[in-house]
């Protein structure tokens, strides 16, 4: 293998030079044009939203398409100085964090025997998990609500966390199993020769080596939980329910329907955590999404 890489890179370098000569600069303008249009269509609405939050309702009513004049800080300040926004963010963080930990722990544990043990019924259990892809939360929402009601989990953290873990498990197992299967058999062989048990192998070797896969599934689970709407909508009834951010946004919109500037500021603020998270984890999210179904 080591010997074959050198000529390979050499030909690739040579051919990429040929490529630039062949395609030339003729279509770079098309590329730039398409890129600019796509970026504009994507960012335009978001920028309008952010700027709208800096205007007063009177300004918006006078001319919806104008820059803030003067800049109004009141909308953002009112939301940020009011405890509810932070409380909703905190609730979302707790729910999404706990969901992520639960999914990664249970999913990796389940994937280990499914990937590296040989036992009867292994494929059957795996099929049961994969079939979970066909059971979206939407379909099961009413019986799930009744079940959570019986458990006394309606209107609390557990009612959000545990079902979200359950519904994220199929994707997790589907991604983690091939990931663990891909670890070389020689590694296992050597570990056993050194006297490691299968359980020891899991903690000493699998966990450190599976970290990239765990991060990927964790990121997907976090995002799914953070953006989740239907389950909080149905479960979080009652005065003391830990309202999550998506639900909080719609509540604010419902209570202040005529306060355009306020809604825009609130909506934009609610987008920021997801955008920051995305900027940090972009690679993982793309890998996870494309890997989830191919696996």
């Amino acid at each position: 293998m080591a010997t074959s890489t050198i000529p390979e890179t050499r030909t690739r370098r040579r051919s990429s030079k040929a490529r630039t000569q062949l395609t030339g600069d003729s279509s770079i303008y098309v590329t730039i044009f398409v890129a600019l249009v796509a970026v504009g269509l994507t960012l335009g609405p978001l920028i309008y939203l952010a700027l709208g939050g800096f205007r007063s309702n009177a300004q918006i009513a006078a001319d919806p398409n104008a820059l803030p004049d003067p800049w109004v800080w009141q909308n953002y300040w009112n939301i940020l100085s009011n405890g509810t926004f932070w409380r909703f963010t905190f609730n979302s963080l707790v729910v999404a964090g706990a969901t992520t930990i639960g999914v990664v722990a249970l999913g990796t544990m389940a994937a280990y025997p499914l990937a590296r043990y040989r036992f009867r019924g292994r494929e059957g259990i795996f099929v049961v998990f994969t079939a979970g892809l066909m059971f979206p939360l939407t379909v099961a929402i009413f019986p799930l609500f009744l079940l959570l009601q019986d458990l006394g989990w309606v209107g609390g953290y557990w009612g959000l966390i545990v079902p979200q873990v359950a519904f994220a498990l199929p994707v997790t197992v589907i991604i983690m199993r091939p990931f663990l299967q891909a670890l070389p058999d020689e590694l296992e062989e050597a570990s056993f020769m050194d006297g490691l048990t299968r359980v020891g192998f899991f903690f000493r070797m699998i966990l450190p080596l599976a970290k990239p896969g765990m991060v990927t599934v964790g990121v997907l689970a976090f995002l799914g939980s953070w953006n989740g709407y239907l389950l909080p909508l149905v479960i979080l009834t009652g005065r003391d329910a830990p309202t999550t951010l998506p639900l909080g946004v719609t509540q604010f919109q419902g209570q202040n329907a005529s306060d355009f500037a306020g809604i825009m500021a609130y909506t934009f603020l609610a987008m920021i955590p997801a955008l920051v998270f995305f900027l940090m984890m972009e690679r993982r999210i793309v890998d996870g999404l494309s890997g989830a179904v191919k696996g």
């Binding site: 796509a38 970026v39 994507t42 609405p45 978001l46 939203l49 995002l223 953070w226 953006n227 709407y229 951010l245 998506p246 639900l247 946004v249 719609t250 919109q253 809604i263 825009m264 909506t267 934009f268 609610a270 987008m271 997801a274 955008l275 998270f277 995305f278 972009e282 999210i285 793309v286």
Partner: peptide, 15 residues
């Protein structure tokens, strides 16, 4: 280009 995908449906919808 990918950013809208990670936004919550709720926030994108309200926008």
């Amino acid at each position: 280009i990918f950013a809208p995908y990670v936004l919550a449906e709720v926030t994108a919808g309200l926008m």
